[in-house]
Computed example of a mutant assay.
Amino acid sequence: MHERLRSDGPLSVEAYMEACNAYYYATRDPLGAGGDFTTAPEISQMFGELVGAALADVWRRAGSPANVRYVELGPGRGTLASDALRVMRSIGLTPPVHLVEASPTLREAQAALLGAVTHHEAIGDLPGDAPLLVVANEFLDALPIRQHVAGVERHVEWIGSGLAFDRDGEVLETSPARDEAVAALAEGLVAIGGAALVIDYGHERSAAGDTLQAVREHRFAPVLDNPGEHDLTSHVDFQRAAEVAREAGAFVAGPAEQGAWLERLGIQARARALANAAPHRAGEIEAARARLCRPDQMGSLFKVLAIHSPEWPSPAGL
């Protein structure tokens, strides 16, 4: 990246973020204690189980179509899919699995855990001949954003001995890549039926502000340090995501705060059942439930947005 900036000149924030994340995700498994961050499915099986229950429920209320497919966008190691599909199988739903994943490292992990899966490079590559049950957990936050200050697009440039932004001030963020992904998802659901759960951290209403952040070894890091070696993300604008989905003809429910949504789906009862089955793990299970649900942890910052075709009902809890 340093060499590119020296030779090509300043890069937009969008181009910088895209290049950094392309290298980052292609060269490592970033998840877990030995990685840079931990997602909700890695915290507890309860998360994936409740996602699976919500999708199975909406499938039943849609008339239980026999040819439905399970789709996950950015599925990490496949942990969420494994937990969700286990719940689906318990009610007789065994959909083929389609994963949108570009990382060779993570594709290998997903196939090892889940078995027969079909991988795709992009949402537009998904099959268009059967309804979809879609999950996108912490997928949109990693898509590149544009930043503008006083109407001028912000860039990263080489100054002196390091990288710096070319301008400062109140930042307005947009994300054409995010809009494109939501539009493609919504258009697909409208055309063939189905429902999607989009779960991510961000704000319910559009607002100005610089939300670009870098994480390494479970700590925040300067976003311009060691490009390609940090996970770069930004907060999702859920109001904008809902607008894009509606413009594509889809129906939208939410967003709801993750904690409240999980509580409505019954995470308390599931935690009790797990603790009763393994009393020696009761403290660990309760700590995981609290981390997923408490407002001062993941419960309020993370939101859940449902996007579904007009013919399908809204997923539960929203």
Rank of each mutant, 00 (worst) to 15 (best):
E3N: 06
R4Q: 13
D8Q: 14
G9F: 05
L11S: 13
L11A: 14
A19M: 09
A19T: 14
C20S: 14
P30G: 12
P30V: 13
L31W: 06
F37I: 06
I43T: 15
S44E: 07
S44Q: 03
Q45L: 08
G48W: 06
L50K: 02
L50G: 06
V51Y: 00
V58K: 02
R60D: 12
A62S: 15
A66F: 00
V68C: 13
R77T: 15
A81F: 04
A81M: 07
S82H: 12
D83Q: 07
R86P: 04
V87M: 03
M88D: 03
I91G: 01
I91R: 01
L93C: 13
L93E: 08
V97A: 07
H98N: 09
H98D: 15
V100E: 11
L106G: 11
A109I: 02
H119G: 15
D125E: 14
P127F: 11
L133R: 00
V135H: 07
V135F: 01
A136L: 12
E138P: 02
E138C: 09
L140K: 03
D141T: 11
P144R: 04
I145H: 02
V149H: 02
V149C: 09
R154I: 13
I159V: 15
I159W: 00
G160I: 10
F165D: 09
D166I: 11
V171N: 05
S175F: 10
P176N: 04
A177L: 09
A177V: 10
E180G: 11
A183C: 10
A184K: 00
L185A: 10
L185N: 08
A186M: 11
E187Q: 14
L189I: 13
G193D: 06
E204K: 05
R205A: 12
R205V: 15
S206K: 00
S206I: 03
A207D: 08
G209V: 10
L212M: 13
V215T: 15
L224Y: 07
D225G: 06
P227Y: 04
P227W: 03
E229M: 11
D231T: 11
L232W: 05
T233S: 15
T233W: 01
V236T: 13
F238Q: 05
A248E: 05
A250T: 11
F251R: 10
A253E: 04
E257Y: 01
A260Y: 00
L262S: 06
G266W: 04
A269G: 12
A271M: 14
A273C: 08
A273E: 15
N276C: 10
N276H: 08
N276W: 05
A278L: 12
A282I: 11
L292K: 00
L301A: 15
L305P: 12
S309Q: 02
P310Q: 04
E311Q: 12
P313R: 03
